[in-house]
């Protein structure tokens, strides 16, 4: 049963299995365990990013192509659902319509970008996606009458998801719309993750890995690499759109800083690399670790900056705004010394 659910790709390490079960259990019980808003927000964010990072791993880790446009698809999903709910009213129908439109737009864009740039040389792809993504981010910020510009849009979600208290359960307390929203996000994330696991362990996924290892040989074996690369790109884009939609649904807000900025792209890269490229479980570990650290690291850095106030330069280096610096250093170091990430290390040991 578990083997079928995980598509035969078991964690293959006792410690890793333990960690995964712990994360799954904590996320599943998060609304009951943590009453505070901050903790439940963190849990929802982890769910969203697991989907996003898993979809990026499909590209980077399994197919071996670097895309800088992943936040664009994430943003498409966020804006699709957000703007639909904003302009067509808070109903399920408009949310679904927004998601559908965003999915089609995302797939079409991914298909076009893939067809153009993957045909020539994989390295084109990184540059083309970077250019397209920044053009998209600028467009989203410029067309302010439609997208809300830099401020983004806040909107209301369907009735059921914002109810105060629906039913009173024994031991648990009132079930609010917020709790239901959380479970919608959590279960959708779980389903998409298992779906991604299914994809990478299918014959299709094997071909992707063959292309990553040696595209020339894969082509020689008779696989149309352009077809497989473009399909992988479309699949990853579709999943990212979905993650963006979940994010919108949870935060009831969509804007360029939370979905389209290059900083988010970097976060995704870091999560994939730290968790472990080429393993779906890496996405879970990477996303969880990163988001938990992100919430507490900045506080820690603030404290460290205060305590070193008297010294030259050091407080500037430790200023909470500079946490991207340390993430960057960590990123470079982990690509060098830690290319298989945490999951790779655990599986070795």
């Amino acid at each position: 049963m578990i083997k079928t659910l995980l598509s035969g790709d078991l964690p293959r390490s006792r410690l890793l299995s333990g960690l995964l079960v712990l994360i799954l259990a904590t996320l599943a019980a998060a609304p009951l365990l943590f009453p505070g808003a901050q903790a439940i927000n963190t849990a929802a964010k982890i769910c969203v990013f697991v989907v996003l990072v898993a979809s990026y791993d499909l590209l980077l880790g399994y197919t071996g192509i670097v895309s800088f446009a992943h936040t664009m698809f994430y943003g498409l999903g966020g804006y699709g659902v957000g703007l639909a709910l904003y302009s067509w009213g808070p109903t399920w129908a408009s949310a679904l319509a927004g998601l559908t439109i965003a999915l089609f737009a995302g797939l079409a864009l991914a298909f076009l970008i893939g067809l153009f740039s993957l045909r020539v040389r994989a390295i084109f792809f990184a540059m083309v996606t970077l250019a397209v993504a920044s053009a998209f981010a600028i467009l989203a910020a410029q067309l302010s009458s439609f997208t809300g510009g830099e401020d983004g849009r806040s909107f209301r979600i369907p009735e059921l998801l914002r109810a105060d208290a629906l039913i009173e359960l024994p031991f648990v307390g009132p079930i609010t719309g917020r709790t239901i929203t959380y479970y919608v996000v959590f279960l959708s994330a779980l389903a998409s993750f298992l779906g991604a696991l299914r994809i990478v362990n299918s014959p299709f996924g094997r071909v992707l890995q063959a292309i990553r290892e040696n595209d020339f040989r894969a082509e020689a074996l008779g696989y149309r690499t352009i077809f497989y690369r473009t399909s992988a790109n479309c699949l990853a884009a579709g999943m990212a759109v979905f993650a963006g939609a979940l994010n919108s649904l949870w935060f009831r807000y969509t804007g360029p800083d939370t979905t389209l900025s290059f900083a988010i792209m970097l976060d995704i890269l870091l999560m994939v690399v730290i968790g472990g490229m080429g393993t779906m479980y890496g996405a879970v570990i990477g996303a969880t670790l990163f988001i938990v650290a992100q919430n507490y690291l900045q506080k820690l850095m603030g404290a460290a900056a205060k305590s070193t106030e008297a010294l030259p330069l050091l407080p500037h280096l430790l200023h909470p705004d500079r946490w991207l610096l340390w993430l960057g250093v960590l990123f470079v170091l982990s690509v060098y010394f830690f290319p298989t990430g945490i999951v790779g290390k655990l599986r070795q040991g």
């Binding site: 670097v66 390295i123 990184a126 970097l266 890269l269 690399v273 330069l313 500037h316 280096l317 705004d321 500079r322 991207l324 610096l325 993430l327 960057g328 250093v329 990123f331 470079v332 690509v335 060098y336």
Partner: peptide
């Protein structure tokens, strides 16, 4: 290369801030 040099860009940009 792409990953490492992107990381280098981030670090350099942050050092300018510092």
């Amino acid at each position: 290369q792409i990953l490492i040099t992107t990381g280098g860009l981030i670090v350099a940009e942050q050092l300018i801030h510092v």
